[in-house]
Each structure stands twice: as C-alpha cells, then as structure tokens.
C-alpha cells in the first residue's frame, strides 16, 4: 500500500466534489452539520488522496493507516470522502439519513466499510486512536493513526487524558489534527471556554506541534505527508480553518453549525462551490 499521491490540484478538485455532495445531502434531508463539514473538507481530501495508505477494496488490512473522525457530526464531509475513496458507491450518498440507511447521522462502523469506530459523542476519537497506536507499536507495524477533532470538542477532558498518555508513550505514529475553526455549536470557542494557547497546551503534554492553514492543500501535504523519521513524539497539527468554508454566507457563522439551506440558498451555494 502506498498513498494515492494525488496532486494538490487533484486534491482540490476532490474537495470541491465533496463539498457539493455534502451540500446536496444536507439540503435533501434538511438535516446535518455543513459548517463543520466544510471546515474539514480540505483536510480529509488531503489525507485520503495524498497521505494515507489504505486499500478501499480490502479495508481490514492490518497495516493500513487509520483515520478516526472524532467530530462525528461532520458526516457530510466524512461520507463523501469515503465514497470518493471508493469504500462504497457514490449513489449511496443520496440515502443520507433516510429510513434504515447505512448513512446514519453519525458514523457506524457496522454499517459501512472504512469507519474504524463509532463517533458522535465528542471526545471519543483520541482515546480510541491512542489504543490503535499502542496496538501498532506492540505489533511492530508502522501504520499511522490520524484523528480529526473539532476545537470545541477539545473542551472534553477525555482528550487531555489521552493526550497526556500519548506524550508519555512517545507515540510518534499518532497524529491529531484539530479543525481550528474557532466556533462550536452556539458561539465562539474563546467566548465559551477558551483554548488558546492551544499549541502550548499540546507541547506541554509532550507533543510536537505544527500550525497550518487548513485550507492550503500544499501546506497540509507538507506537514501530514512528512515522514515520521526520528520524531519521538506524537504530532499535533493545528489546522486553522473557516467554519462553512467555500460558501460566503455560511463562513464564520455559528448558525451554520447545523443550519440547513433553503432552496434559494442551495442554488447560491452550488454556484459558489463550482
């Protein structure tokens, strides 16, 4: 297995495809979390098309790189990247949250291939990823484990319990990516329970920290695709993002956490996403 090594332009095209699909899924169902879908899209596209080693046709290979969507509400982005990567047929996306659909509002590993663990309650991904990384070390496998968290999500203490342990264990093959869009459900993160200085917090817990523009595919490729080498620390990538990225009227607005577009807004958004 090797990464798909798509070009940056190719990855950007995939991200555009994903945003349009997420938009349609949420519009059709009139339910979903577009703000957090759009802030995470470029990160997901970069991981799946430029960084991770996996075989979508044999998803259980022991040596595969793992991805965990800890911000499990962003299924518009997550399901569309899994479809784009070939884990399941694209037309399944139209069943999003329909009765008895495999595409539940939050991801279920028993319904779809490519999902490592069930998420939805925030603050579960990093502890599970920690366990996966420990297992890799015990088995002497060199797979990498990537976990994407929201920034508001980091208010959950479980993340910091796991972060402390990962630093202690020098888990170099574990990477957390923080979708730092500075908004949570009802308001900004800093006015709710501030996280800054987030980089110092992770450093204090024994992590190597990189800051990156989470919509700059080249920059994401550089930090996420860099070989682990002799770094003896887990990697924290703080990806500065824009919630609702790509649709002008959704960007940086708390209400688009779970807002759903009207017909006119849908048309407008589609135009902006070409």
């Amino acid at each position: 297995m090797s990464p798909l090594n798509d070009t940056a332009a190719g990855i950007r095209a995939k991200a555009g495809w994903m945003r349009r699909h997420a938009l349609k899924m949420v519009y059709d169902k009139q339910l979903g979390h577009l703000g957090g879908d759009f802030s995470a899209t470029d990160i997901l596209a970069t991981l799946y098309f430029g960084v991770m080693r996996y075989d979508a046709k044999t998803p259980g290979l022991p040596g595969r790189d793992r991805f965990i969507m800890s911000k499990g509400h962003a299924t518009g982005a997550f399901y569309s990247v899994l479809a784009a990567a070939g884990y399941f047929p694209e037309d399944w996306l139209s069943t999003y949250m329909q009765p008895n659909s495999k595409l539940n509002g939050h991801p279920n590993r028993n319904y779809l291939p490519g999902i490592e663990t069930n998420t939805g309650p925030l603050g579960h991904g990093l502890p599970v990823a920690l366990g996966i990384a420990i297992a890799g070390k015990l088995s002497r496998l060199d797979y990498r484990t990537f976990v994407l968290t929201g920034d508001g999500e980091l208010q959950e203490g479980s993340n910091w319990e796991a972060a402390m342990s990962a630093g202690n264990r020098h888990l170099s093959h574990l990477t957390v990516i923080v979708d730092r869009n500075r908004l949570q459900q009802g308001a900004g993160t800093e006015e709710t329970n501030g996280l800054d200085p987030l980089d110092d917090k992770f450093r204090a817990f024994g992590w190597h920290v990189e800051m990156v523009d989470g919509h700059d595919v080249e920059a994401l490729l550089a930090v996420l695709g860099a070989p682990v080498g002799d770094r003896r620390k887990p990697l924290c990538v703080i990806a500065n993002t824009v919630k609702g990225k790509g649709v002008s009227f959704m960007e940086n607005k708390a209400m688009w956490h779970h807002g759903v577009p009207s017909a006119a807004q849908y048309e407008q958004a589609l135009k902006e996403l070409v």
């Binding site: 169902k29 339910l31 499990g72 509400h73 949250m97 539940n104 509002g105 939050h106 279920n108 069930n118 998420t119 939805g120 309650p121």
Partner: peptide
C-alpha cells in the same frame, strides 16, 4: 428526539 442522528444521540 434526535431521530436520524442515531443511537449515540
């Protein structure tokens, strides 16, 4: 109440 958001919710 959270319907299609599923059993976690």
């Amino acid at each position: 109440a959270y319907g299609e958001l599923g059993p976690t919710h």
